[in-house]
């Protein structure tokens, strides 16, 4: 469980986020919306420990991220799958190796890892691209590869930052379907997006809570969504 307790984040003298409290219950599904520059990406980074709150506490399994060492935060990230806004890969490694990277860095790349990887590649529809290199992938394929990499460690929480940002509607629906499937497997999912059509489409598939960042604060979105 991840708890945010009255957190604030300031950068360069200005406060980007203020007095935010939220609990991500296991198995819940959240959308995080708001205008560009509202702080959605910053908010996600605070949750997975890439940024540390300047006030308040972000507690992961009861432990304050500010009290964690760098290595503890790195280990926590193995339980939080992140699909970043700008998907980054190691361009010199094959797609399959990139997806298996979390297994590699945590020393779990032995045993049945190859079977898991093959199943995952099939699930995201990248089996035929597994021998390719990241620059050869299309936008949608990169998003699916990023999603596969985020979930290969079977994390408890999946954070996706604008996962449908640069892809067509059909591909967006496919990505959404994968995230909904993960939620049905019991994973906590949070998707940051400004795509309201995607949120409306999701509401028919999953019971989602929609949160909006506005004026540096987090609010439960109204019925207009």
């Amino acid at each position: 469980m991840i708890e945010l307790d009255k957190i604030a984040y300031s950068y360069g003298g200005g406060e980007l986020l203020s007095d935010i409290s939220l609990t991500l219950q296991p198995g819940s599904f959240h959308f995080l919306t708001g205008p560009s520059g509202a702080g959605k990406t910053t908010f996600l980074k605070l949750i997975y420990g890439e940024l540390l709150a300047t006030a308040g506490q972000v507690r992961i399994s009861g432990m304050d991220t500010r009290a964690m060492t760098r290595d503890q935060i790195a280990r926590v990230r193995r339980h939080i799958g992140v699909v970043p806004q700008q998907t980054q890969f190691l361009d010199h490694l094959r797609v399959a190796d990139n997806i298996a990277l979390p297994l590699m860095v945590s020393g779990r790349d032995g045993g049945g890892a190859q079977t898991d990887l093959d199943q995952l590649l099939g699930w995201v529809g990248l089996t035929s691209q597994k021998e390719q290199f990241p620059p050869q992938l299309s936008g949608g394929e990169r998003q699916r590869a990023a999603l596969a990499r985020a979930v290969i460690m079977s994390p408890d929480v999946i954070l996706a930052d604008e996962p449908t940002g640069n892809i067509d509607w059909e591909m967006s629906q496919r990505i959404l379907k994968l995230l909904v499937e993960l939620n049905k497997m019991g994973k906590t999912v949070m998707i940051a997006t400004h795509d309201l059509a995607l949120i409306r489409a999701a509401k028919s598939q999953v019971q989602a809570r929609v949160l909006r960042i506005t004026g540096r604060r987090l609010q439960l979105a109204g019925a207009d969504l």
Partner: peptide
């Protein structure tokens, strides 16, 4: 730098 960022993101510790 980008390689390191990716590795940190997927949970690699500094010593790795």
């Amino acid at each position: 730098r980008q390689v390191i960022e990716v590795l940190r993101q997927v949970g690699a510790v500094d010593s790795y």
